[in-house]
């Protein structure tokens, strides 16, 4: 990979002059992208992270927040590891803006990965995706309490479907087991939509999908939510099914599952070593994105909590989040090596 511009003397004098001017004025002139920026998406096309990145792309385009064009590349292989490895391998390249979740720092914990969490630096977290317990629309459980009681009656029999193995879904299921003294069977499928189909078809008992992943099927009554893993109930919105909306779902804590908060941050990263000014530039860019009505529209529609975090605040969040999840990994013995 070539990061520097090997300009030869006879070449395009004006450009050289411009470069000289840039180096002289140095810090006075803020960093600006000089070529197309690559959005590295750590999920396949159509996944949650993909929608996130493409929404940001569409907002930047619509409001003309950046002069240079954007190239989106999907690198979802190995549960997203492909994208992180790709970014990590281009040290200090400020043109690889990488979109992901908390899997950036969780993947290296559970498996031998050819990248370390430190190989990328966090730029911003833009939203928090919620988790809920979903059951089949025809299931008898009226509340999460009923569900947990049923699980206590049948230890090791009831099945949770999830996106992947040892991911945020399975971590949450372990936490539920720990908090309620139940024992579930976790079946890893390929992605949230598969976990949804299995639940809608009645092949598993529950899943912990994000709101957006199950919205369309809740509208049709194929699945129904029991409780949400957030400290307070979700904001009131339009009714989704039989007069009930997102705001009517009780919190899991109120249902006797002692997990006050479990969320997944939607994060943006740059390769470690990328210039500080570039980081600041993207932070500002993403802040502008997060203040548009289109962004608000996106978070409302996908029932995410818009929360813009950068700098120390973000680092603090990541540290806390990593610590709490690692505790589960240790309990379950998932740690790599």
């Amino acid at each position: 990979m070539y990061k520097r511009n090997p300009l030869s003397a006879h070449q395009l004098k004006p450009l050289a002059l411009l470069f000289a001017a840039l180096t002289v004025s140095g810090s006075a002139l803020a960093w600006q992208p000089e070529r197309p920026v690559e959005f590295v998406v750590t999920s396949g096309a159509g996944g949650g992270t993909d929608t996130f990145a493409r929404t940001v792309q569409s907002i930047i385009g619509k409001h003309k927040l950046m002069d240079k064009s954007i190239i989106v590349s999907n690198k979802g292989g190995g549960s997203g590891a492909e994208g992180y490895v790709y970014s990590a391998s281009s040290q200090d390249d400020p043109y690889k803006l990488t979109f992901g979740t908390n899997n950036e720092y969780l993947l290296p914990e559970v498996g031998e990965m050819p990248y370390a969490a430190d190989d990328l630096q966090p730029v911003a977290a833009m939203a928090m995706d919620e988790f809920l317990i979903w059951v089949n629309g025809d299931a008898d459980y009226a509340s999460a309490k009923d569900f947990i009681d049923a699980a206590k009656q049948n230890p090791g029999k009831m099945q949770f479907a999830g996106s992947q193995s040892k991911d945020t879904d399975q971590t949450l299921v372990s936490m539920i087991e720990e908090a309620t003294g139940t024992d579930f069977r976790y079946v890893p499928f390929n992605g949230g939509s598969q976990a949804l189909v299995q639940l809608a078809g009645g092949h598993v008992d529950a899943n912990v999908n994000n709101p957006n992943e199950n919205l369309g099927q809740w509208q049709a009554g194929m699945v129904k939510p029991l409780c949400v893993f957030s400290p307070e109930q979700l904001p009131k919105g339009e009714p989704v099914y039989q007069g009930k909306g997102w705001g009517d779902i009780p919190t899991c804590q109120s249902q006797g599952i002692d997990i006050s908060e479990y969320r997944m941050p939607r994060t943006v990263w740059l390769p470690a070593g990328a210039h500080e000014e570039a980081v600041t530039y993207y932070q500002e860019l993403l802040r502008k994105v997060s203040e548009t009505p289109e962004w608000k529209d996106y978070t409302t529609r996908t029932v995410q909590t818009s929360r813009f975090l950068t700098g120390d605040e973000l680092q603090q969040y990541i540290d806390d989040n990593a610590k709490s999840v690692k505790k589960v990994f240790e309990q379950e013995g998932w740690n790599a090596s």
């Binding site: 159509g46 996944g47 569409s58 598969q194 189909v197 957006n212 369309g216 099927q217 529609r301 996908t302």
Partner: peptide, 27 residues
């Protein structure tokens, strides 16, 4: 059903969401 039947359908569904539609039986 609102679930993708192929990789291409998955991309289109991502598109639906960006255009402001909710893929699902109620569509």
């Amino acid at each position: 059903l609102g679930v993708p039947g192929s990789a291409t359908a998955a991309v289109m569904m991502g598109g639906l969401m960006i255009w402001g539609l909710t893929p699902g039986p109620m569509l």
